[in-house]
């Protein structure tokens, strides 16, 4: 966790106040990760859950994630739904229109591998990673809105390991099991330091 995540305490205890010391990487990653604007590339059923995630009950905005349909405004493309051969060039072009740095979330089984449309069909691209670099995969047909939110939190962990200097990028270490909103109660031994 970067120092900037504890800005409040740091400012008060710092010598004279008002000064904090952090690395440029930590500051850049912090600001990138905390306001991920999403390009909702919703094509099929998953788009319904994408809408549900950003509405009243699940309220995506509280994570700083806000859907913007214009690729030039956004940081992360959420590919939600089946991508067909007819649609793939459009998705690729939209990805190219997004400004760097940019990330891709593959939401749902269709975007991961074609899902239920893997076999026997002539028109479906089997996974969006055939032509886009995917950072986070969210399984489900369709995934619940909570899973999508968990996916965004995971993406933040990946972003936190990035660097503005390419040779300093660390490998992302993800913690398991999920810290998402779905919890099944504590299992024995859980909750202690791993």
């Amino acid at each position: 966790m970067a120092l900037v995540d504890r800005l409040g305490q740091t400012l008060d205890s710092g010598s004279g106040g008002g000064i904090i010391l952090t690395s440029v990487d930590a500051l850049a990653n912090w600001s990138r990760g905390k306001s991920l604007w999403a390009m909702p590339m919703g094509t099929a059923c998953c788009a319904m859950e994408l809408i549900a995630a950003s509405f009243n009950k699940f309220d995506f905005d509280r994570h700083g994630t806000f859907p913007r349909p214009d690729p030039r405004h956004t940081d992360v493309m959420v590919v939600a739904g089946t991508i067909t051969r007819k649609m793939a060039p459009a998705v690729k072009r939209l990805y190219e229109q997004m400004a760097d740095p940019k990330w891709v979330i593959a939401m749902g089984n269709c975007a991961i591998s074609g899902g239920i449309f893997y076999y026997d069909t002539y028109s479906v691209v089997r996974g969006v990673d055939e032509f886009l670099p995917v950072d986070v995969y969210i399984a489900g047909c369709p995934p619940r809105p909570e899973s999508l939110q968990d996916g965004v939190l995971r993406l933040r962990e990946i972003i936190a390991t990035g660097s503005i200097s390419p040779d300093r990028v660390r490998e992302a270490v993800l913690t398991l099991p999920s810290s998402g909103a779905v919890s099944f109660g504590k299992r024995p031994g859980e909750g202690e330091a791993r």
Binding site: T84, K86, M87, A90, F117, Y119, D120, T121, Y122
Partner: peptide, 15 residues
């Protein structure tokens, strides 16, 4: 149209 044509009618023939 056809950007979401997934060929469900063809798939059904092998299910």
């Amino acid at each position: 149209i056809g950007y979401l044509h997934r060929g469900i009618e063809k798939m059904a023939e092998n299910r």
